[in-house]
Simulated assay, not measured.
Amino acid sequence: MTVKNYFPGAEAKLETVADGLGRKVGAHNDNLMVVEVHFEAGTTAPMHHHPHEQITYVMSGKFEFTVGDETYIVTAGDSLYKQPNIEHGATCLEAGTLLDVFTPHREDFL
């Protein structure tokens, strides 16, 4: 089996997930995945959960994140950890981009 090591950003497609919300899947294998998520101001990612561990790094913008019972206002340079199956969601306060890392990879994103 050949392992893919390079995932050029120029070849990644920005997929529209919902109005004001798009994503680009980057490098991934069975155990790990990176995803760029683009939000327009006012867009909400509804509360949800999944069996994957997730780290979110705020590249730009301003967001209100709820993780479990806690709510945070986050901006560029901040990061959040989401344990498996914890309820979480976000509202974009100022247009921006997040970088999500999942383990294992999100098969539903491929």
Rank of each mutant, 00 (worst) to 15 (best):
M1F: 11
V3L: 12
K4W: 03
N5H: 15
N5C: 13
N5P: 13
Y6K: 08
G9S: 15
A10M: 11
K13T: 09
K13N: 15
K13L: 04
E15W: 03
A18D: 12
A18Q: 05
G26C: 14
A27S: 14
H28V: 00
D30V: 12
V35L: 04
F39A: 00
E40P: 12
G42E: 04
M47Y: 07
M47L: 12
H52I: 14
E53V: 02
E53D: 13
Q54C: 11
I55Q: 06
I55C: 07
Y57E: 01
M59A: 10
S60H: 03
K62H: 10
K62P: 01
T71F: 07
G77V: 08
D78M: 11
S79G: 05
S79V: 08
S79N: 08
L80E: 08
K82N: 08
P84N: 08
P84A: 08
N85G: 03
E87Y: 07
H88V: 04
A90H: 02
A90K: 00
T91K: 11
T91L: 10
C92R: 01
L93K: 13
A95R: 05
G96F: 01
T97P: 03
L99W: 14
D100M: 01
T103D: 09
H105L: 13
E107T: 06
E107I: 02
E107H: 00
L110F: 04
L110G: 03
